[in-house]
Write a protein that binds this DNA or RNA. Structure first.
Lengths: 354, 354
DNA sequence: CGATCGCAATGAAACGTTTCACTCCGTTTT
DNA sequence: AAAACGGAGTGAAACGTTTCATTGCGATCG
């Protein structure tokens, strides 16, 4: 009997189905210690004698005490919830990001509270997640540098990490892809077979940060080889299959659907390949194609699509890590991390079938 | 000057950048009312005289008071957070579910807290979200009827809705797909061209609830036409492209790769079509194929894949609605809702090209 | 005209934790 | 031996809301 009842030991006889759940006070009373001590045992925040701690733990187990998370959040002013604001993407793309972020968050003792943001939406949904300041921090996917969401986020003062666009100049930590290198690798690969003059870049939306970076890197790669970019050699559209088709048909009309294309994502690339098939332009023999994303469709089309693989899960995980570091060091200098991509060579860019 | 200072009016001179943020007490003191009245103005939970309410609102605006959400959660014992537990799916499938659920949750004033559950995982991740009882309710995607997760959820006592598997018998509200009808429609469609004896079902994992329902409905549809299911006419595997290929190659070896196939998802169907192409079996002329999901790839492959479209966004939305109803009526009878699917006819199942 | 009703508003008690400031007491330092 | 120290534990405030029980008070009812 290790119990030492200094305080009148309230006889709580296993309140199994009793109305109110047991609180830290019940534990303290039963174990004959103060609630402060119980709190410290739970959080092992401060030295507690081993024997006392053991006794408290025994009582906790016996009474089946579970700390009330809402009270804890209230009292400690931290919810350990990370808000995650995403555009309404569909596709694996986002699920990888989500899983990567979720896994890391769980590992670090955080939860992810998700909301989608319809593009061009008024601020209501933003405030929905930011304003309900149950969140300790915010992860936000932004695809355009002038997205007004950034303002809101900055104004709210919530620790934030921006995904997919570099906003470190605006004072927000960012995690982005190394589009320069990914693009350069793809260009170098394609230039093994075609002249710089017959290499094209087909972008997504002109405002899209990734598309901007990739097109710039594309131009830089060609110019570094002494080639002057010609009009029509770089074009923007959107991230759809249809745009890819449209581009290919347009090029075909001008009799220029040959050489090589770097598309800003796999869907555009697939659209180009579809159109090429209809137009009897052989891929890769007459037209070599590379996309971005390594999406499922890139492995499914025939010929299989060469693509720049993006480490989305790592991106999510790194963003969470960055965010947690930011919570701990609120005044550190904003930083932008770049993640390496990987060029996956498949049949659409090389005649050699694997 | 509509102020009526009955209580000593504490002079809070715009504590703009003062340390602690203003609380309901500051508002009450400034407006010359009690905190109870302020609370009721905020939540308009009870009648407040119009003039008083206006004055309070004015003070709230002037002081820039924002109720502390953590305190609110603590005091009201509701977080308005719905936990969402998902398997580690990748693909649009899940994003539609997510967006549907998110939109409805936002509409109803709830937030979604997400976690992924690796299959066959120990209970830790489950408890991560269930145990951290910040959640008011739980949405959980379960794909197998004997998933032990159901036990945990039931034991936790959290209001729960199960997605994708009928667990109403176990006492959990469920939202599922009408696999019977979806399957029957697909079978009816295919039987316009082929005999019941040369119609095959290629399933996913045998434990998967949808696959089970679809295979049963497949058998029932054929038997209702007086056809006796033959060995090998229904086979299970998994939800991968590879399994589709394997099945097709196996059938080809037996000289039976012809007629029509209903695959349990689009990936399997694509695998079958790929193999058929390699084996010089023409789709749809020699082999008609239908999948499930209406995934992006179903629109990308050639010939385009006929498929049973699943209303995933509605599923998410309905699940949230059901959950909110459950929160309000904790003792209602568990109910299982079925969502209608839609057969999309494309080229893979019919010779008529659109 | 007194009793009753209902609205507007109040006062104060919860809610369950964390944490600061402090006490107690045995041990080491001077 | 007195003083300083530090480990273990205590007590109580604080956090900011919701909500219950209550009070005033003018209007309605019988």
């Amino acid at each position: 009997m290790p119990a030492t009842p200094t305080i009148t030991p309230v006889p709580i006889d296993e309140p199994s189905s009793t109305g109110s759940p047991i609180s830290i006070r019940d534990v303290a009373a039963t174990a004959g210690v103060s609630i402060a001590t119980v709190s410290r045992v739970i959080n092992d925040s401060h030295a507690v004698a081993a024997s006392t701690a053991a006794r408290v733990r025994e009582v906790i187990a016996r009474l089946g005490y579970v700390p009330n998370p809402m009270a804890k959040v209230f009292s400690s002013r931290e919810s350990h919830i990370i808000g995650l604001a995403l555009p309404r993407f569909h596709g694996e793309f986002m699920t990888w990001l989500l899983h990567g972020a979720d896994e890391e968050a769980t590992r670090l003792g955080y939860h992810l509270m998700m909301t989608t943001i319809a593009k061009g939406e008024d601020g209501s949904a933003r405030r929905h997640i930011i304003g309900s300041l149950l969140i300790d921090a915010l992860l936000v996917v932004i695809t355009e540098q002038d997205d007004p969401l950034a303002e809101d986020v900055l104004a709210s003062g919530v620790p934030t990490v921006v995904l997919d666009t570099d906003m470190s100049a605006q004072g927000l930590d960012s995690v982005i892809l190394d589009n320069e290198r990914g693009t350069r690798e793809a260009v170098d690969h394609l230039l093994r077979w075609v002249e710089p003059g017959s290499l094209y870049f087909v972008g997504g939306p002109p405002q899209n940060f990734d598309t901007q970076q990739r097109s710039k890197a594309f131009a830089a790669a060609l110019e570094s080889r002494g080639h002057q970019i010609q009009p029509g050699q770089i074009e923007m559209g959107d991230y759809s299959l249809e745009w890819g088709k449209e581009w290919a048909i347009r090029m075909s009309r001008r009799g220029k659907l040959s050489g090589a294309v770097l598309a800003a994502n796999d869907k555009i690339a697939c659209g180009i390949m579809h159109a090429a098939e209809d137009l009897k332009v052989s891929v890769p023999d007459q037209l070599r194609v590379i996309g971005f994303n390594d999406s499922q469709i890139s492995r499914l089309v025939r010929p299989r699509l060469s693509t720049v693989s993006l480490p989305m899960a790592e991106m999510g995980a790194l963003a969470v890590r960055t965010l947690v570091r930011r919570i701990e060091h609120p005044n550190a200098e904003p930083h932008c991390a770049k993640l390496q991509t990987k060029l996956l060579i498949r049949e659409s860019s090389t005649a050699i079938h694997f």
